[in-house]
Amino acid sequence: MKLSNYMTGLLLAILAATGFACKAIFVKLAYRYGVDGTTLVTIRLLLVLPIIAIMRLFRKAPTARISWSDRGMIIVLGLLGYYLASLLDFLGLETVSASIERLILCLYPTLTVLLSAWLMKTSISRRMWSAMALTYCGMVIVLTPDFASARLDLLGMFFIVASTVSYAFYLTWCPPVIKRIGSMRFAELALTVSAIAMVIHYMLTRPLGILTHQPLAVWGYGLIMALVATVLPLYALSAAMARIGAGKTALIGSVGPILTIFMSIGILDEHLSPLQWAGVTVVLTGIWLVGQRKT
């Protein structure tokens, strides 16, 4: 592998991790203007569509026909991964800090292992059980101070956990479809399904005027989320995996929670206690061990 190609892959992986880590920060900044989670995720997905259309102009789109079974799976996975998981996540962020949200979301690898064992009858090694137990013990350490001081909103936490479960189902079921139609084509189609579903959801639950009368800053943050925290990281992630492999890309992506925590401290003035920092270390160690499993 040429050094320049390898370094490009590393930079793309860092770019993807940073983009995904920024999402919760932009959501919190937008909430300062009084927008609700449903409206904000609708704005984000609406703005994703033209960006995807523009990106497709710069690359040769595949023309192979997609089977009806894969079309059905794309609809199901689009609803799980970018519609339901995003909606629940944004609703949770209305009351849960960006730091806690990011740590809960990073539990999805452990849930994916459990779902694979349940749905696909795969085995879980003793080492993997130990790693997952370590991860959840660390999460208990992180959440205990907020529970004790009644600072943690239980409904908001429920939304974040439900978002993580939805995303874990998405990750469990999407690999065969991605293998057949390609990662970027799948991501583009799934995002399109999600945007359509979110628009329908919005029209059934909100007056259209709420969307059109949002402050310009809210639309600005929505555009930043669509571009910097959604579309560009997806393309960068795919390109990084092609250059340095999925393993190294995932390893670099594991720094995402730390990036989110530091950004939440510097930008949102959030903070974690020393005990919670210890819990963060335990959680990320467990997640790293889960990520070392053989596939």
Rank of each mutant, 00 (worst) to 15 (best):
L10T: 12
A16G: 08
A17G: 03
T18S: 05
T18N: 02
A21W: 05
C22A: 13
F26P: 06
Y31D: 07
G34D: 06
D36I: 09
V41A: 01
T42E: 07
L47Q: 00
L47C: 00
V48D: 11
A53S: 13
I54Q: 10
F58E: 05
F58L: 09
R71A: 02
V76L: 13
G78V: 01
G81E: 15
Y82Q: 10
A85V: 04
S86W: 10
L93M: 01
E101I: 05
E101T: 06
L105A: 04
L105D: 01
L107Y: 09
L107Q: 08
P109E: 11
S130C: 15
T135W: 02
G138R: 00
V142M: 15
G156F: 07
F158A: 14
Y167T: 05
Y170S: 09
Y170I: 11
C174Y: 03
K179L: 09
F186R: 00
A187Q: 02
E188M: 11
E188N: 08
S194T: 10
A195L: 01
A197W: 14
I200L: 02
M203A: 05
T205R: 02
G209T: 10
T212Q: 07
L223P: 10
M225Q: 01
A226N: 06
L232G: 01
S238V: 13
M241G: 15
M241Q: 15
V255A: 07
P257Y: 01
I261H: 11
I261K: 08
I265K: 01
I265R: 03
G266Q: 13
L268M: 01
D269G: 14
V283M: 13
R293Y: 12
K294Q: 12
T295I: 10
